[in-house]
Amino acid sequence: MSASKPSAAMVDTDALVLGLSPAVATAALYGSMVHSMGILFENAISAQKLQTLSGELVVLEGILENLTATAVDVADDVEMLDPAAELAAILKSLHPKH
Rank of each mutant, 00 (worst) to 15 (best):
K5F: 06
P6I: 02
P6L: 10
S7Y: 01
M10R: 11
M10A: 11
V11H: 00
V11D: 03
V11K: 11
V11G: 08
D12Y: 07
D14P: 00
D14E: 13
L16C: 11
L16T: 09
V17I: 10
V17N: 00
V17G: 05
G19V: 04
L20G: 13
S21D: 13
P22K: 02
P22L: 02
A23M: 13
A23E: 14
V24R: 15
A25K: 14
T26Y: 10
A27L: 15
A27Q: 12
A28T: 12
A28I: 14
A28G: 13
L29T: 15
Y30D: 15
Y30E: 15
G31D: 14
G31Q: 13
M33K: 15
V34Q: 14
S36I: 13
S36C: 14
S36H: 13
M37N: 13
M37E: 14
M37C: 13
M37I: 14
G38Q: 14
G38I: 08
L40N: 13
F41L: 13
E42M: 09
E42I: 08
E42F: 03
N43T: 09
N43H: 10
A44I: 07
I45L: 06
S46D: 05
A47P: 02
A47H: 04
A47L: 09
A47T: 06
Q48L: 12
Q48Y: 01
Q48I: 11
K49N: 07
L50V: 04
Q51M: 12
L53D: 12
L53H: 10
L53E: 12
L53K: 12
S54A: 15
G55F: 02
E56A: 04
E56Q: 07
E56L: 02
L57Y: 00
L57N: 05
V58F: 10
V58I: 12
V59Y: 00
V59L: 08
L60D: 02
L60R: 04
L60A: 03
E61K: 05
G62Q: 08
G62D: 05
G62L: 03
G62E: 03
L64N: 08
L64A: 07
L64W: 08
L64G: 00
E65N: 12
N66R: 07
L67M: 04
T68K: 00
T68L: 07
T68S: 00
A69K: 06
A69H: 05
A69I: 04
A69S: 01
A69L: 01
A69F: 02
T70E: 00
A71L: 01
V72E: 01
D73G: 08
V74S: 05
V74C: 10
V74L: 12
A75V: 00
A75I: 01
A75K: 09
D76H: 10
D76Q: 09
D76M: 10
D77L: 11
D77T: 09
V78R: 05
V78E: 11
E79T: 04
E79S: 05
M80E: 11
M80H: 05
M80D: 10
M80S: 10
M80G: 06
M80K: 10
L81Y: 10
D82W: 00
P83M: 06
P83W: 03
A84R: 01
A85P: 02
A85I: 09
A85L: 06
A88M: 06
A88V: 04
A89E: 01
A89Y: 01
I90V: 04
K92F: 02
S93L: 04
S93Q: 07
L94H: 06
L94R: 09
H95K: 02
P96Q: 10
P96K: 02
K97S: 01
K97W: 04
